[in-house]
Design a protein around this nucleic acid. Structure first.
Lengths: 107, 107
DNA sequence: TTTTAATATCGCAATATTACGATATTAAAA
DNA sequence: TTTTAATATCGTAATATTGCGATATTAAAA
């Protein structure tokens, strides 16, 4: 099939999985890391820096935006993509809460 | 294409993405949560609990094992799947280190 | 106003993932 | 030894993801 049966899981499970999933691509990790160390976070740099086609980078940026991790502001002809720090911390907390709550073993 | 170009990223980036990716499925989240709250973590329960076919559950378990998050011990006819606590904590730390290191914004 | 530059979107091809039935495999139970 | 129960693996169908060229779109520059 290839369809994740989201309907049999609850919303927190689906949401958490979605966050993990979007972080689960090396290009998106690299994009976040690169943006974080730039002062001027212009998308065009990313194409050269990461080494993927412009269309591909744009797609990855869109996905990172979809979970709120990036915010983009138009700056003349360019875009200024930045990490949304509030969301970033929120997400980190959510993941930690998952790790903290889910770690009792039985063997 | 559909092929992730892993060769253009470095090992830490690929590894981190791989961890995120494997956590990025609601069934695997649910499996971890269920195992963590059981005393007896027998796989057969999971099929009823999660609501996916036995073959599918087995496949998800295999992926969780692949990043070391689960360890399985044979217990008679059954398997006792448990969270590998050392690995669990190690991974939590790795993800936190990513979040902590990568959060400077520019806007 | 035309050109240029930066980014987004569309449409596709290639590959990956998800799910499951069917079929091993393995060890206890009968 | 045969049966039963639990799990793993194989093969396959359906869908998702990745990546990119081509083509919008948009705003500054010429």
């Amino acid at each position: 099939m290839g369809v994740t049966k989201t309907q049999i899981f609850d919303q927190p499970q689906n949401e958490l999985a979605q966050f993990f999933k979007i972080l689960g691509h090396p290009a998106r990790i690299a994009i976040l890391q690169y943006i974080s160390k730039q002062n001027a976070c212009i998308c065009n740099d990313l194409v050269e820096e990461i080494g993927l086609a412009q269309a591909t980078i744009s797609q990855h940026l869109k996905e990172l935006k979809s979970i709120g991790l990036l915010k983009g502001e138009i700056e003349g002809k360019s875009m200024c993509y930045c990490i949304n720090l509030d969301r970033w911390n929120e997400l980190q907390q959510l993941l930690n809460s998952f790790f903290d709550t889910t770690k009792y073993n039985c063997c």
